[in-house]
Design a protein around this nucleic acid. Sequence first.
DNA 1: CGTTGGCACTCGCACGCACAGAGTGCCAGG
DNA 2: CCTGGCACTCTGTGCGTGCGAGTGCCAACG
Lengths: 338, 338
Amino acid sequence: MLSERRLQVLRAIVQDYVGTEEPVGSKALTERHNLGVSPATVRNDMAALEDEGYIAQPHTSAGRIPTDKGYRLFVDKLAGVKPMTAPERRAIQNFLEGAVDLDDVVARTVRLLAQLTRQVAVVQYPSLTRSTVRHVELLSLAPARVMLVLITDTGRVEQRMVDCPAPFGEASLADLRARLNSRVAGRRFADVPRLVEDLPEGFDAEDRGTVSTVLSTLLETLVEENEERLMIGGTANLTRFGHDFPLTIRPVLEALEEQVVLLKLLGEAGDSGMTVRIGHENAYEGLNSTSVVSVGYGSGGEAVAKLGVVGPTRMDYPGTMGAVRAVARYVGQILAES
Amino acid sequence: MLSERRLQVLRAIVQDYVGTEEPVGSKALTERHNLGVSPATVRNDMAALEDEGYIAQPHTSAGRIPTDKGYRLFVDKLAGVKPMTAPERRAIQNFLEGAVDLDDVVARTVRLLAQLTRQVAVVQYPSLTRSTVRHVELLSLAPARVMLVLITDTGRVEQRMVDCPAPFGEASLADLRARLNSRVAGRRFADVPRLVEDLPEGFDAEDRGTVSTVLSTLLETLVEENEERLMIGGTANLTRFGHDFPLTIRPVLEALEEQVVLLKLLGEAGDSGMTVRIGHENAYEGLNSTSVVSVGYGSGGEAVAKLGVVGPTRMDYPGTMGAVRAVARYVGQILAES
DNA sequence: CGTTGGCACTCGCACGCACAGAGTGCCAGG
DNA sequence: CCTGGCACTCTGTGCGTGCGAGTGCCAACG
């Protein structure tokens, strides 16, 4: 177990390194933080910290920089979440309240997060799984062609074409529309399959095929759209990454283009509370020199999607976590209102 | 006017520089291209080309590199469009045909373009202005709350909430839905305002306010959605930009995040045929060291939107133009089929 | 007059080297 | 356990040098 002072030294190292981006030495430490001990003592502590794997030196006789393990300890034990100031909170709220629709909410959230944290922001669209159906609309475009429109309680709209096995009259269509909505409106997506299971039985034999086709398309939509979409922004902040550009930045850009990777990244994060994944804790190799701070957000008490930021492991964790948490909270409010 | 040989020299310089990324000298030129003259002669020609502003030297006694003006001449007079090979064309077609909906078509197009050109791809969603209305759907969510869903012939769906000034019965809603669709279904967006102008007159006084509100929301949607959206991809290719990273890449990333800038960029390009904007020809300052190759694409004969790539001025123009043209052509086909 | 070979000149760049500065590890003493 | 001192190890930087690529100019040639 590390002594109290050694933890303080680690904290000081992380703070200084995040600020200066340069390896920090024993002398500089004692000058900038009044630890009450001499550089020599700090050197001993640093040697111990290095033995434990919390810090490392890039080359012999250079200062120390935190390792992933060091950051981990810092985040878990040494740093709190820095709350936003009142003016900042007000600014966030104002900015988000200007949104006109769901797309706009997401877009504004991305901009906001990127600006506050000066890093790359990632925001997942509110998930369908936990959402409820507001309305299902069926439109006849041709005798054997129906358009299915699904409207969710988060204001999202999905549409699908359905090619029917047989012509389908307007009357039958209206009938189906009515029965379908009476069963699923207001219900959770997860419950829909069970609720519509026996629906075809109420129809004439000739229409039954079409009804089944429409229903299976609906179910498909529910599942498929679970492969959720997301929006990213603030990629220009990647230029503040480090000195050795191309090599560091390229894999990150590639990861950001792969929605699958990002979704997995967010998905792996815990469902409740804020998650911080540091460096090699990220499964995806390209993100080994980045940290991901993510948190769930949602309209009610429970989370329907996640948002977060991707930045260098050398980041201001307390500040970033504060910003992420605050934004998530206010987005939740906005979604609940609309 | 430049002699034939001098143009050949310019062409050779551009080709070599694009390939090697290094200033090209007179000796190397005569070796790699058999111009039939000696280095000394080429030197004279190069001096002349430099006087005219087509090429420049980074520092005294280095080779020459093309200027924006040089690239311009190259593109206009010296280079054709390199057609895609048959296998490439087949690959493009296969890849695009796998798309399941409009979003997917656009997403695939972006990926494809980025991969083919190894540059940043930008694809505009098919524009609404020139599209036609397939269907307008009205849904009653609450007594005084209607949801308006607009479906276009390109398969795009837009929805809007409408708060009615007075409760609006199901019967009136069905009536409005029917009349509205009989007037606008299949018509061009541009014609819609004229077509619905006198629609409120056919309704009871108590409903007239609501009808007007719905109609004006519809018109708003048509206009607003003209601020079209776009999708970008292949940003990882920015890492192949040049040697002096952060400075070059940052403004480009910033520009790419500003949809407004990109839309303006595409909008400024000519409506028909391919447009190439080189370096300082781009109005936006951040893109002064990039070239933009864009072209319109559309489902019928006429263009409904644009797509293109953004890359360093030092790019393979014939190849890039070939890829852009081919992709635009096949996307048009796909859109026409669906 | 255009083309050519020759020649002197100019830079940028890589290399070697020495030096200062920062930081460490270790040790002996308080 | 803390502290001051000391020797050691690196890296980054500045400077001088030599090399090579490339240019511009000029005189000669067809």
